[in-house]
Amino acid sequence: MVAIKKIIRNCRQATLLIEKQTTDKLTVKEFLSLRLHLLFCSVCRLFKKQSVAINKMMINLIKAAETNAPKLDDAYKTSLQQQIDEKIGK
């Protein structure tokens, strides 16, 4: 009972497991303790939702930065290709 109470109280551990679960497989013990915790803790359920949303937004932000990135200027490109040509010319 004490152990179960501890799991239900420990939001620090639960939120760490939520992060781990986004990309990795939890151990059986971790998985069960997270399930149990979330059953009783609405704040951590909210954290989980927000955490997923934040990841999505970060991916979008990086993808947008990729699409909107400035182009390299032509002078730089020319000098770059020259460097390459010199090396393969050898």
């Binding site: 990135a69 400035p70 770059l80 290709q81 390459i84």
Partner: peptide
């Protein structure tokens, strides 16, 4: 290389 990939690689690097 420069012609075909430089802009792509640049945008990849800059976004990160």
């Amino acid at each position: 290389w420069v012609n075909q990939h430089a802009d792509y690689l640049y945008s990849f690097a800059i976004s990160r």
